[in-house]
């Protein structure tokens, strides 16, 4: 390779390496802020601010959903299997909201540790299958 080209190759490599290092440092500094939501364990540990708009995410605990009979109010618990968070929400839930499924809720924590949600988003997983396959999996004894 021609020495001039070799030198230009080094410049190109330098650009890529330098920006990667810069980006790595930025993301290292921002690492907490890059998260969309807090898991319940972090909220229980007091890492989330109170009375400030935040997001929390986790699984809706089985059997925890209580729907109010005369309003759109729903109470449920989200969990990351280490800690639980009680959530209350008034509004229309997304279609995919269900017990045992992931959600991301945005709202404010009150002093008692209750999350008053203003928005509930369903978080789905990366699994896709036809309903018959899902039923077959559910009925198999070894699959939970």
């Amino acid at each position: 390779m021609h020495p001039v080209r070799k030198q230009r190759l080094l410049v190109v490599l330098f650009i890529v390496v330098a920006t990667s290092v810069a980006a790595a440092l930025v993301f290292y500094a921002l690492r907490e802020n890059m998260n969309l939501f807090y898991p319940p364990a972090d909220i229980q540990a007091g890492k989330a601010p109170i009375e400030t708009s935040i997001r929390a995410g986790g699984m809706v605990k089985e059997g925890s959903v209580v729907k109010s009979p005369d309003s759109l109010r729903v109470d449920f618990v989200i969990t990351d299997y280490q800690a639980d968070l009680q959530v209350t929400y008034t509004g229309i839930l997304p279609d995919l909201f269900d017990e045992g499924q992931g959600v991301v809720v945005s709202g404010k924590l009150d002093v008692t540790g209750l999350m008053v949600a203003s928005e509930v988003l369903a978080k789905h997983d990366e699994n896709y299958m036809p309903p018959e396959v899902a039923d077959a999996l559910k009925n198999k004894p070894e699959a939970k």
Binding site: T19, A22, N35, E126
Partner: peptide, 25 residues
Amino acid sequence: LVGTVNIPIIYKSVDWWYSLHQPAT
């Protein structure tokens, strides 16, 4: 070339941070 750094970030973002987007299928 500078923007190349964004590509692995996009790809790994769902594993590195809590996000609404699900991981790769």
